[in-house]
């Protein structure tokens, strides 16, 4: 019960640190890039549909990478697609996040050994924040991935901006894996 609390008690003003306000805003409106690569995309669509309803977390699809905050790599990344993924990632404005959805984009999945045309993990071309395992992951798993991403965003600080695309020599946060 400080002076400020009393002063603003009856008005619509909340006092928080700038950092948590920014983080709160960021994590509460994660617009994802609307594209899918394989069967995982079907699960992603199911997650966005009314049963699981992405929208209740403020997660909505966006058709332009320039307006998207997060990229869900939902499916098999072929060697041909890899350069396109890279280009899409470069077109996103910062801060930008990547969720790798499913075994294929995590590690190549069933194409790990004999898929001549499949990239063995999307993290070879772009940095990944959250890996969601499964083949394909259920909508709950993808939601859990988003909750982990939100957790990560709420721990961000403005003093030490996150390094993504540069080869950062500073300590880089280890990617989180959904249980």
């Amino acid at each position: 019960m400080g002076l400020l609390d009393k002063k603003y008690h009856d008005s619509n003003i909340i006092i928080v640190s700038l950092e948590s306000a920014l983080n709160w805003a960021r994590k509460s409106s994660l617009w994802y890039e609307q594209f899918g690569l394989a069967c995982c995309a079907i699960e992603m669509m199911a997650t966005a549909a009314s049963d699981y309803d992405f929208d209740r977390f403020g997660i909505i699809p966006r058709s332009s990478p320039r307006q998207a905050d997060v990229m869900i790599v939902a499916g098999t990344v072929t060697m041909k697609m890899a350069s396109r993924i890279e280009r899409l990632y470069e077109q996103m404005s910062e801060p930008r996040y990547v969720i790798s959805m499913g075994s294929c984009s995590n590690s190549g999945g069933p194409y790990w050994e004999h898929g001549y045309h499949v990239l063995k993990g999307v993290d070879k071309v772009i940095p990944v924040d959250v890996y969601v395992p499964g083949c394909p992951p259920r909508p709950e798993a993808l939601l859990e991935g988003f909750l982990k991403l939100q957790e990560r965003i709420s721990n961000e600080t403005i003093i030490e901006p996150r390094e993504t695309e540069q080869e950062s020599t500073e300590e880089e946060k280890e990617p989180i894996e959904v249980e």
Binding site: A82, W112, Y116, H117, L119, K120, K124, V125
Partner: peptide, 19 residues
């Protein structure tokens, strides 16, 4: 041509390893 039975996969494509 990947479906040739004696096909040998290239090691990398545009500087990305094919694994």
């Amino acid at each position: 041509h990947p479906l040739r039975k004696d096909y040998e996969q290239q090691e990398s494509y545009r500087n990305v390893s094919t694994g």
